[in-house]
Each structure stands twice: as structure tokens, then as C-alpha cells.
């Protein structure tokens, strides 16, 4: 069990983003991860064509949080038929911004010596939670009061049996910080904060009933359109 132990941040398993049939034999699978404060795209490139592939480059369309490659795609050697390589591409969040649908959608173009190929991928919003996301308690209380009720969104997290310390630890490994814990009538209430790379703060109340395996998550944010993506990240973090 990982209870009480630092176990790293949640990283989605790689999925196929570009099937070989759509890219003249180039297959790309990948994931976007946050590791030690750095956001990176982790790619596996497979050459399923009959010819060598060279001259790789990558470009992103503008996107909701300004994600952009922070370096060139490093594929040093030609990729032979049937060869597969893993590549890590560091990302920055200071690229051009345009609101995407859904918000966490990223459109990517990859070129090689054969052609240019396009694909879309979805990344977990938790990669954008910064290490400096612990809000001061006084500021939290004032902000919680200040954000109007119509900006509050509520979600159920079902089938989760972790205790509140395990929950806090798992979330903190993903830069979701518990700043207060209260027990009221047998319910554990955790008050939490996180900050996105673009400066948006999200405040959370996680309510856990001892008798139930379902948690209630209430999120308050001045940009409430991010809330459903934050909920998705809570689910992924707590259930993995």
C-alpha cells in the first residue's frame, strides 16, 4: 500500500494519438505528465512504413493554457522500418492562448520527411497544478466567501475507500493542498486549494462520510468552466 508514502504524481497511461493508417506508417502514442515541476509530453514513435523516417518536428496549435514545446523534438537518428523510440518533449505554458473545446484539448502537428500529420489529444488538467498552490488560510476563507454560490459546482466521487490522510497525501503529490480538516457529525471535511499555471485558483471542499464510499466534492472558482476538469483529475488521482 502507498498509504502515507510519497508515491509521485498521477500520469495517464500512454494512448495511441495517431494511428499508423492515418499517417503513412507513423504511429504516435503519448501522454502529458508533470514530473518534478516540469510539464512534458512523453511520446512513443513507431515506424510501421517500409521506408526510413527522418527530419521530425512538432508544433502545437494555440490552446487554452498556452502549452507549447519548450525545445525541438529530439529524434537524433533516422527511424528505420519497425523501429520504435521514446521521446520526451519539455513543454512551457507561455505559448499563444485560444480557448479550446473541450478546454483540455490540444491540437498537434508532427512532420517528418514523408508528410505533415495532425492529431488531437486530451490532457489531465492536473498537469497545470503548480507547486505554489497552497493558499493562505485567511485568504482561503475570504475567497471562499467572496466567490458567488453560482460559481460553485458539486460532484460525487463514487467507490473510493481511502481515509482522509491517504486522500490528502495522494492529492498533495499532485499539488492539491489540504489546508484545513474538520469533523462535523461524523463527516470529514477537507478544505483544499490549487493554482493553475495561468494563475487561476481553485478552492475545494471534499466531504467524506465514514459510512459511505462516496465523497462529495464542491469546487469554487472564479473561472467555473475549469471545475469539471478539476473533478476529472480528482477522480483519476484518487482511483489510481
Amino acid at each position: 500500500s502507498n498509504v502515507g508514502m510519497p508515491c509521485g504524481s498521477y500520469v495517464e497511461p500512454k494512448t495511441v494519438w495517431l494511428p499508423a493508417v492515418k499517417a503513412k506508417g507513423l504511429e504516435i502514442s503519448g501522454t502529458v505528465a508533470r514530473r518534478m515541476g516540469t510539464i512534458q509530453m512523453e511520446l512513443t514513435l513507431s515506424n510501421k512504413a517500409m521506408q526510413v523516417m527522418t527530419d521530425f518536428a512538432i508544433q502545437f496549435n494555440r490552446n487554452s493554457f498556452g502549452l507549447a514545446p519548450a525545445a525541438a523534438l529530439q529524434v537524433h537518428t533516422p527511424l528505420s522500418p519497425n523501429q520504435t523510440i521514446d521521446v520526451v518533449l519539455p513543454l512551457s505554458t507561455v505559448g499563444p492562448v485560444m480557448k479550446m473545446e473541450p478546454l483540455n484539448n490540444l491540437q498537434v502537428a508532427v512532420k517528418n520527411n514523408i508528410d505533415v500529420f495532425y492529431f488531437s489529444c486530451i490532457y489531465p488538467i492536473s498537469i497545470l497544478f503548480v507547486e505554489e498552490g497552497r493558499m493562505e488560510r485567511q485568504v482561503f476563507l475570504a475567497t471562499w466567501k467572496d466567490i458567488p454560490n453560482e460559481n460553485e459546482a458539486q460532484f460525487h466521487i463514487k467507490d473510493c475507500r481511502l481515509n482522509s490522510d491517504a486522500v490528502s497525501n495522494k492529492l498533495q503529490n499532485n499539488n492539491i493542498f489540504s489546508i484545513a480538516k474538520r469533523n462535523v457529525d461524523g463527516q470529514e471535511m477537507l478544505y483544499q486549494s490549487m493554482r493553475l499555471t495561468n494563475g487561476i485558483w481553485v478552492l475545494a471542499e471534499l466531504r467524506m462520510q465514514a459510512s459511505s464510499s462516496s465523497y462529495m466534492l464542491s469546487l469554487k472558482c472564479r473561472a467555473p468552466e475549469v471545475s469539471q476538469f478539476v473533478f476529472q483529475s480528482y477522480e483519476a488521482i484518487l482511483k489510481n
Partner: peptide, 20 residues
Amino acid sequence: EIDDGLDEAFSRLAESRSNP
């Protein structure tokens, strides 16, 4: 938790949320 004098405020918040 650090005793910053806000413990009571969080208790009030939690109670108001539990019993609106």
C-alpha cells in the same frame, strides 16, 4: 495545523456547510 487563529473560522465554515 498551524495555530493562526483561524481554526474557529474553519469550524464555523464546516458546520455551516454540513447544516445549512
